[in-house]
Design a protein around this nucleic acid. Structure first.
Lengths: 342, 342
DNA sequence: TTTAATTGTGCAATCGATTGCATAATTAAA
DNA sequence: TTTAATTATGCAATCGATTGCACAATTAAA
């Protein structure tokens, strides 16, 4: 019904050369004379030839494809990371197969399986697994297919290739900033504490308190989903506290803005009564009223660095002696939501 | 150095059966007896067998992969669409290869070429081409590989499979709403007018004016990049107008919020002096001060519908008689930014 | 017991590109 | 003119899974 695919054999037949010659000519193999090469390329173009990546991948054991697994696609931060990855990958001749784990370990396992079957040349994962040593990456390790964790890493970071920011330091700096503003009772609204990113931010929070000789109060650390809806509930819960906190360090902007919104709706003045910080520097946080203090989290760069590192690992066949850990710069953005009044 | 891959031949050898039997057993082919099937499956598992998608794809001419091309990955709306697509695709046994065109036709062409070579089973495109009939999709059409355009379609929508919302109607309703609020001079800030989405919204805007017997003033339609930075420039340009508009219909939320922010910074009261609407219902638009009137644009559903339609086309081999056009529901969200004061 | 029908397996070709090795063609050197 | 060196091309096996067809084995029917 539809015309059969043009293959190198068809081109070879037309020109009375062998398929090998065509194959070599098309990829500028030096053993083919420039004259032949041009003739073949012209013919290939004329016949509308398109190389078959499956066939070539099968033979060379390379798919030119990189696997990516993220908890969810639909967040501004994540899409920024992916944008950086895609760009870097394409520039190096690779494609991205992107999958979501929906924060479920089972899903992540299944994704790993599928990506392995698809013979991706490397893997980039923002893991959802709370395990310090998730075991289901073994097939990749055994076959020496490089794996890099970005943003969300396994607990045991020394054992894996990682690209992150220094979450502990960021959490420390944010908290210290609030303390300098003379805030005494800082609520920390965070995500699943088993996840390394959040654990580290919490560590930073504790460190800052400790430095000021303030006791750490575990009841001031609230674990949530960090979504918009969670924000509303948290605001309500805050309003029911016998004594309000005078500052809140929220582990992402989305939730911080939602909390702020609902507190304001109940007449709480921000930053006068309660100061608030977020985390991520989502595009809107600068336009919130008051503008939100946050940490600028370099998504695009993170994506780019991760992809480039992965491609580097793929190209250097030899096994690297030890895992690396790229720690990217972040930036504290102090804005109105944490400014002491004059 | 690394152990060779386990193949169906290895399993066959171990069990003294043929590779055909193994192949059939693993995919529950009815011709294989249940007993044999179980034995083979157990062995496969024991030997850590992973099927090779490249080999099977080569043979069956199916990659189980869908190509996606979007202008940019890093927008909240787009990542929502992709989330919906990914979910639907995985549920049906497909993977997504996602590429960005960066709003450049050349890039889009190149992406098409690459995805064709990768033998994707179908293609979903939010096109960047302003042509009414982009020609570089031909290879797909010729081979009867299904292509669906979502959100941004070619101008000539009747000729292609499309999934969109009714942008004209949405534009019409927003404008009519502003007119009902007794606004007379409505500025329309839009994207590239060659792009169908924006063209249609503009048509809706015109229609609403026409219905009220108001003359359409082309100098009140401003074409921009719709980014955060554009917002600032537009705000400045507005402030320099001899007579300010009393309403602004911006073609996306991001830019609308940026404009609003900068106008407010210059003391313009919103909505009293100027009413503003956006488009997209980005998560923060509800938290803007004042909350932003906008159109709820069902990204996740759009992604899901597009992917499911594509998979349907793939599965029904026969050529559909005519292209389809799914028009998804949208919803006008009237919020404070366009409320007349009591 | 023989024949027919049913069920389960295997053979071998196929998908399309790649590549080590052998050979043919050309050029340079003797 | 002969030999050696260089350059260009072809042969055929290979990557791993799939599948039409033939055939063997088993069961049912005559």
């Amino acid at each position: 019904m539809f015309p059969r695919e043009t293959t190198i054999h068809d081109i070879a037949r037309e020109l009375n050369v062998s398929a090998s010659t065509v194959s070599r000519a098309l990829k500028d193999h030096p053993a083919i004379s420039p004259k032949t090469r041009e003739v073949i390329k012209a013919k290939a173009h004329e016949m509308g030839y398109r190389s078959n990546a499956l066939a070539s991948g099968l033979r060379t054991r390379k798919s030119s494809t990189l696997g990516v697994i993220v908890p969810r696609l639909n967040s501004y931060f994540m899409s920024t990371v992916l944008a950086g990855m895609e760009k870097a990958a394409v520039e190096a001749g690779y494609h991205l197969i992107i999958m979501q784990s929906f924060e479920m370990e089972e899903k992540e396992k299944e994704n790993i399986r599928l990506l392995f079957n698809h013979r991706v040349d490397g893997l980039m994962v923002s893991t959802t697994s709370p395990a310090s040593d998730p075991d289901y990456f073994e097939p990749f390790f055994k076959k020496n297919i490089p794996v890099i964790f970005f943003d969300r890493t396994p607990n045991n970071q020394e054992k894996y290739n990682c690209v992150t920011i220094d979450n502990k330091r960021a959490g420390y700096q944010l908290t210290r900033h609030l303390l300098k503003n003379n805030r005494k009772k800082i609520l920390h609204v965070t995500g699943n504490k088993k996840i390394e990113v959040y654990r580290q931010r919490l560590e930073g929070y504790k460190l800052a308190l400790h430095e000021k000789n303030l006791a750490f109060d575990p009841t001031l650390v609230w674990e949530t989903g960090l979504g918009v809806d969670d924000g509303k509930q948290i605001a309500e819960k805050i309003l029911k506290m016998p004594a309000l906190p005078d500052a809140i360090f929220v582990a992402n902007d989305t939730c911080a803005i939602a909390i702020m919104h609902h507190l304001q709706a109940q007449g709480i003045k921000i930053p006068e009564k309660i100061q608030i910080t977020g985390f991520n520097n989502d595009p809107f946080s600068a336009f919130a009223k008051p503008a939100l203090t946050t940490v600028n989290y370099p998504g695009e760069i993170m994506g780019k660095v991760t992809a480039n590192s992965l491609i580097h690992l793929i190209n250097t066949k030899h096994v690297e002696e030890r895992p690396f850990h790229h720690i990217l710069d972040f930036e504290l953005l102090i804005r109105e939501s944490t400014m002491n009044q004059a």
